Amino acid sequence: MSEVVAVIDYGMGNLHSAGKALEKVADGQKIIITGDPAQVRAADRVVFPGVGAIRDCIAVLKDTGLDQAIRDVAAAGKPLLGICVGMQAMMARSEENHGVDCLGIFDGQVTFFGEQFSDTGVRLKVPHMGWNQVQQCMAHPMWAGIDNHTRFYFVHSYCVTGLPDDAVAGRCDYGLSFAAAAVQGNVFAVQFHPEKSADAGLALLENFLRWQP
């Protein structure tokens, strides 16, 4: 029986692009897009893409029971990939919307770019949008075949801070350094959009489908 890869759809934005990208690189895996917590728990691998405001995202996850399903997948040791707001939602707390408690899978915080200044004292433009290099902070199967400092596509106004060094798999420099990728056991999360990052993004998604944490 082929593996089932669940892409979580919580009804906010067009999350199907991640599913389409996964289908391009799947090797016999069945890609499903679902908002059913039972299907998420039953899947062999889970992708949690995210768009929109974090308060709305967390509220929908709680209302549907997907919040606990995501935690259960993480606890079960199954490969779990967070993308963009999906990465931010895995942190302990976000300062967006005057502060929102998140899923707490990682012990990190989500901070607004616009209140920060670059190393040269210039206020950062938000959102951070476009292609930017990612420095790989460790050797990891998710980086297989991807050169260090490869460019990925970003669109975000908030970034993850406060992660321990051993949880930071990649960094990006946008006037200041922030976590572009995080890892904790079977959970990997990226701030950029692999489904919008051409060949490098497809390579990362293919690595996820092969990853055996």
Rank of each mutant, 00 (worst) to 15 (best):
V47P: 06
F106D: 07
G114V: 02
A198N: 12
D165T: 15
R45L: 11
V187I: 12
Q29T: 00
Q135N: 14
T64D: 05
A26F: 07
E96K: 06
W143P: 08
G82S: 01
G185W: 07
G175A: 05
C57H: 01
V4T: 15
D165S: 14
R55S: 13
L80R: 05
G28F: 10
G11M: 08
A169H: 08
D36M: 08
G86T: 06
E23L: 13
N97F: 14
P141H: 04
L15A: 11
R71S: 02
T111M: 13
G77A: 08
D56W: 11
I33G: 08
A182S: 12
V100I: 11
I105A: 04
A6R: 12
R151P: 00
A21K: 05
F154A: 02
Q116K: 15
V40C: 06
R71K: 15
G28M: 06
G108P: 02
A180R: 10
F208I: 02
Y158I: 06
D56M: 11
C57Q: 05
W143M: 03
G52S: 07
I54D: 04
P37C: 00
Q88A: 01
M87C: 07
G170W: 11
V60F: 03
L61K: 10
A92V: 08
F188K: 01
A92P: 00
I33E: 14
E96H: 06
A167L: 11
Q29L: 00
I83R: 03
Y153H: 04
G35C: 10
V4R: 14
D166H: 14
P127R: 01
Q136P: 03
V73F: 10
L103C: 08
Q39M: 13
H149K: 14
L80K: 02
M142A: 10
A92K: 15
L163K: 02
T64V: 09
I54Y: 09
S118L: 05
V85N: 08
Q39Y: 01
R210K: 15
L163T: 04
A144T: 15
H193A: 03
F208A: 02
A189L: 04
D101N: 13
W211N: 05
F188N: 01
D199I: 12
E115D: 15
G11C: 06
Q212M: 09
K20E: 13
L124I: 13
S118C: 03
D199M: 12
L80E: 09
V4L: 09
V51A: 11
M1S: 13
D107F: 00
I70W: 06
F152H: 12
Q191F: 04
L15V: 15
C102A: 13
P141F: 08
F152M: 12
P37M: 00
L61Y: 05
I146F: 02
G201E: 07
D147P: 11
V168F: 06
G35K: 07
Q39V: 00
I32Q: 01
W211Q: 03
I8W: 03
N186T: 08
A180F: 06
S177T: 14
V183E: 11
Y10P: 00
I8Y: 01
